[in-house]
Amino acid sequence: MIRLLMVACLLLCLTLTAGCKKQEESSTSPSADQKAAALPDTDGRTLIELITVTQDYRQWPLFPGKEALYKGQHPHGAYLTTYVSPTVLAALQNKKGQLPDGSIIVKENYSPEKELAAVTVMYRRTGYNPEGGDWYWLKYAPDKTILAEGKVDGCINCHRAVQNNEWVFTGPVKPAELP
């Protein structure tokens, strides 16, 4: 009888442990809906808060192959520094050929005197604007005043020239173009 009771207790413990482990896994592994909900809205204030306070983009890696203050051109500035979110870096390193939902590219725009003039941001949200590569565009001043945001025609029209490279001029994204 005691042996039967011990076996029953052992089975009960194993069952409870398996149930707890399954519940723990499901609570720590976010669903696609939870992941989408974790992405910021396509809103300038929200995005600026995310990249300057919550995640400080200046701690992100530079676009592969680029250094700080590389030569730029109009409309961005005489010098540029381009940072990429961890999701962008992973996609570039893994030669995915596509930048995933939630990708963020931040470009600091400097004057010829190497003073920060503006910050421009590309933020990908699937379904946001398929005609514009699903990119949300943002430009803000050093004091965080929003200068342009959303489906900015100037950004879309210019970057359309590199739509086959995920709308990115800074460097190659597609595997055929990667070293």
Rank of each mutant, 00 (worst) to 15 (best):
A38C: 10
L39W: 11
P40C: 08
D41F: 04
D41K: 09
T42S: 09
T42C: 15
G44S: 12
G44R: 00
G44D: 01
G44M: 03
R45H: 13
R45G: 09
R45V: 14
T46D: 13
T46V: 13
I48M: 06
L50S: 08
L50R: 05
L50H: 06
I51H: 00
I51Q: 00
T54R: 13
Q55P: 02
W60P: 01
W60Y: 12
P61D: 13
F63H: 03
F63I: 06
E67N: 11
E67F: 05
K71G: 05
Q73V: 08
Q73W: 13
H74K: 07
P75H: 06
G77E: 01
G77P: 01
L80M: 15
T81V: 11
T81C: 11
Y83S: 02
S85L: 06
T87P: 04
T87K: 12
V88G: 01
A90P: 03
A91M: 10
K96Y: 05
K96G: 10
K96Q: 14
K96V: 14
Q98L: 13
L99F: 10
P100V: 10
D101H: 14
D101E: 11
G102W: 06
G102V: 10
G102E: 09
S103L: 07
I105G: 01
I105W: 00
I105K: 00
K107T: 15
K107Q: 14
Y110K: 03
P112G: 06
E113W: 04
E115K: 13
A117D: 15
A117R: 13
